[in-house]
Write a protein that binds this DNA or RNA. Sequence first.
DNA 1: CTTGCGCGAGAACCATCGTTCTCCTAATGT
DNA 2: ACATTAGGAGAACGATGGTTCTCGCGCAAG
Lengths: 184, 184
Amino acid sequence: MISPETAELRILDAAETLFYGRGIQAVGMDEIRSASGVSLKRLYQLFPSKGELIQAYLRRRDVRWRQKLAAYADSQATPEESVLAVFDWLHEWFGEPDFRGCAFSNSFGELGATSSAVAETARAHKEAFFRYLAELTAAAGKPASLGDHLALLAEGAITTAAITGSAEPAHQAKAAARVLLAAA
Amino acid sequence: MISPETAELRILDAAETLFYGRGIQAVGMDEIRSASGVSLKRLYQLFPSKGELIQAYLRRRDVRWRQKLAAYADSQATPEESVLAVFDWLHEWFGEPDFRGCAFSNSFGELGATSSAVAETARAHKEAFFRYLAELTAAAGKPASLGDHLALLAEGAITTAAITGSAEPAHQAKAAARVLLAAA
DNA sequence: CTTGCGCGAGAACCATCGTTCTCCTAATGT
DNA sequence: ACATTAGGAGAACGATGGTTCTCGCGCAAG
């Protein structure tokens, strides 16, 4: 028997791969059991319902996604480079083979109307992303509005890359960001 | 008994309201029957499966959405105003009480991974939108890249407005568009 | 040793959903 | 008037999915 902590990790890994890759409603609890190797009983002990597993999936992904972005952007030499590095990071992300857009936009479109918990988690994620870009632009001595504008560009690049299957929107967004940054 | 044409319209109206408002998988064929007042038998005569109804819903919405946008933007006095009017139109759309984001982004997030037909329809919609913005910027004598940049802004504004429930992203996107337009 | 508890495997249960079928009614053509 | 046919209402069917239950086993405490 595996430890509860390991079981929880395996479940969350399986849930993330499946929910993100195929859509939440397209994945049954039984499939998460097979993919994780954790029995249904344990699964329901750790996550009493599918809804709670969805929330755990989204919360963990929110933290990890923003941490990876910040680790990349914060390691740049200057504040301006940090701002532009956001779009380089997006380009790397878009190129990953299992990239399928923003997990929060996707889950909002799928469940936002029927689950206020999902809607709220998606809202919190976007708000945190906007806040982070506001910090970056503030560090570069630019007005707060620039952060919003760049966030909109990034958001548009994410959904466009997902639907068209191309990483190019990251470069286009970066070019636009350069113009806005220089003008601000 | 109602005519087949009327039945088809009623079904498509009911499907659009329900699919868009609550998500496609959250709506059963029985609910479309109740909302449209058309019997299940007729429904399946006109749309042999739910998948075909989904496609009909998306195709009709694509045409109408782009027509409404073009009608608004094309009635402006100058090419520059047409370009910026796109964002005014978005602001009006975001303010509608049943606004819930882009039907194509939502359906892509929900079904894009399992239905290549949905994925392709979403892709075609985005491509047509990008092409339209390219026409507008070309008419204003601006480079093609500006069209892409503005489309990314609009795209980001749509998903941000949907998730945050605010129409404000349209104004932010317009402000950014003004800068890009002036610099291009 | 044995008694009982926790676990895994998977069946079972119940609701939902896409789709089809049954049965009844009404209108149409001769 | 009568046979035929189309249509509506809703039951029925088969599959799927979320959740719980049963059963058998191994292990730990007394």
